[in-house]
Design a protein around this nucleic acid. Structure first.
Lengths: 209, 209
DNA sequence: GCACCAATCTGAACGCCGTCAAGATGGTCT
DNA sequence: AGACCATCTTGACGGCGTTCAGATTGGTGC
């Protein structure tokens, strides 16, 4: 019984790597990061606890693969948000809101993404090369009208990333619920906080004060 | 042999709660969060693995106590930084730098502090009542010269906290090492990023644009 | 068709973990 | 002295990440 389905299955199970990643993500979504054990992933995928070790060096490497998918999806979300307007300044706000919403809607995945980065002391390379980070930098560059130096651009991008990440982590804390209601919902709250950051003011407004 | 030392020891070991917290912090500092098991803490304190359960409901409650100390120490660090200048605007920058430096110098403790908050979906109460958060808000209020509404103040404080937290998490990533060198060190890097946030611009500069 | 190899998976085991129940220990109070 | 109770130890349970020997399977060369 070589292939149980029409798809070409390279070996015994089929694409177990893929199945393991999917199983991990399902557990993350339904039970949260605390429940994400390698044994649970194997169970979910219907294989023995030792099976994953033929596809991933250890648990960390599986999580790495999950995180990698997460960064790609964040990238896609930012691309979409950026494309929804031509006004460069609105693009910036949209990027920020989209970033935070991604983190809010995929909290466990977002956690895994940064936990893996922390363990490596480095954000993923794809971020620097052509990923989400570059979209933020490019948008800032367009806002600056060519007046900003390379260093200014880099610093403003880091600043924006910090603000987005910080807000993404704060947004879930229930302290802010009253403020959200008062402002008319979560997105309004997000936009208000972003405004109060006076984000990128130095690059965009560029008056030396 | 009731009291082995001059101090009054309530029971067998002495103040085991205290010893456990100290042991946990020592392990955090020397081996990092991953090595912080309850058994390791008990081992470090010289008691059996079950002993901690007479002082803390479970592992989470011990970590809660550790986190609580962390917030107090962060509070003290911010107080000190704020007191080092009278210029309100400098106070703001000093607060930001002090916050990030605390996180950089106590990375494992900082991690535990926020991990516990996430599990509870809430920042510690002490933050709202008279702690670090209020110091930031008060400083912003002084900067605004009474022109800011309550909501503006709250939003600006959240924005500042997000930026600080975000930067605290980013600072360790090795990608930014070249930029740090280029700017003449880590603190210069910190200050540059804070500047690029145009932080609190809306509250402080208050020109409607 | 068949033998063989390498890739893949299983089963059992190791040491670690968090937690709990039962019992030993030693202050404290009367 | 004796009772009491907080404290600590011992031993156990199930779950974890990981390893390893061996079984199973798919593809390759004859």
């Amino acid at each position: 019984m070589s292939t149980a389905t029409a798809e070409s299955r390279p070996y015994h199970h089929g694409d177990l790597s893929r199945a393991l990643i999917d199983a991990a993500r399902k557990i993350l979504e339904t039970e949260g990061p605390a429940a994400l054990s390698l044994r649970a992933v194997a169970r979910e995928a219907g294989v023995s606890p030792a099976a994953p070790y033929h596809h991933f060096k250890d648990k960390a490497e599986l999580l790495e693969a999950v995180a990698h998918e997460g960064w790609h999806e964040l990238d896609a979300a930012l691309s979409k948000a950026r494309g929804e307007t031509d006004n460069a300044r609105d693009q910036m706000t949209n990027l920020g809101v989209a970033y935070v919403c991604f983190a809010r809607d995929n909290p466990a995945l977002y956690r895994v993404m940064y936990d893996r980065s922390r363990d490596k002391d480095a954000l993923p390379d794809q971020l620097k090369d052509d990923g989400a980070y570059c979209q933020v930098r490019d948008t800032i560059a367009e806002n600056s009208g060519g007046r900003a130096t390379e260093i200014d651009l880099e610093l403003a991008t880091i600043a924006a990333w910090c603000a987005g990440h910080g807000l993404a982590e704060m947004i879930s804390f229930k302290q802010f619920a009253p403020l959200k209601d008062l402002l008319g919902g979560e997105e309004a709250f997000l936009r208000a906080v972003f405004e109060h950051l006076g984000m990128f003011a130095k690059v965009i407004d560029r008056d030396p004060a």
